[in-house]
Design a protein around this nucleic acid. Structure first.
Length: 189
DNA sequence: CTCTCGATGTTCT
DNA sequence: GAACATCGAGAGG
């Protein structure tokens, strides 16, 4: 297991968002390993990005983004969903990468039980993967560089894949320039 | 397959 | 009081 450390996250957010593709997200739960390959991410690039939660300054909700890199920023939205981000760049620069989709590797049965779905519908969305992996607000501020309970690691046999980029999803509220930036990254199927 | 719409509660104005 | 980095059901093609 080659754990991604703080140096990995302490880099420009666009690079981290691209580089997280193909990595393995692992959630250890009651001795069982639930995991999947990260196949879709979005970069949220700090105070100057009008789509980023930190754009209007620090609040109780987004405080973790202002902290050091390598921590989980988990928030609750639409009255029922959790979304998982990983904080990037140096402390005080509030940036993060949203994990939008993973391809399940292990713990399929546990994911199916949580999701009450199967096949493609297991983890192909930011709230879906949180539900499948049992990630809720208690993980907000979790250190993902310790390799405990929730972390990201390099994968053996990581095949080269083509990376596609598009505008980000669900940010109609942002300024035109930020709406149109190709800051969503995905592995070509 | 695509599109529309309601759910549901925290956060921010 | 409005908005929300979403999802899934249901209707229609």
């Amino acid at each position: 297991m080659i754990l991604l450390n703080s140096n990995f996250y302490n880099r420009p957010t666009l690079e981290v968002a691209r580089d997280l593709l193909g990595k393995k997200l692992v959630r250890r739960m009651d001795g069982v390993e639930l995991s999947g390959i990260i196949v879709e991410t979005e970069a949220y690039c700090g105070a100057g990005d009008s789509a980023c939660h930190a754009h209007r300054g620090r609040t109780e909700r987004n405080a973790v983004m202002f902290g050091p890199p390598g921590f989980a920023y988990v928030y609750f939205t639409y009255g029922m969903h959790y979304l998982l981000n990983l904080v990037t760049e140096e402390e005080g620069n509030p940036c993060a990468v949203l994990l939008r989709s993973i391809e399940p590797l292990s713990g399929l049965e546990e994911m199916q039980a949580r999701r009450k779905r199967h096949g493609k519908e297991l983890t192909n969305g930011p709230a879906k993967l949180c539900q499948a992996l049992g990630i809720d607000k208690s993980f907000n501020g979790w250190d993902v560089t310790r390799g405990d309970t929730l972390w990201v690691e390099n994968r053996q046999n990581e095949r080269p894949s083509i990376v596609l980029s598009t505008p980000r999803i669900g940010i109609e509220y942002a300024r035109k320039k930020d709406r149109e930036a190709h800051w969503r990254f995905l592995l070509k199927p």
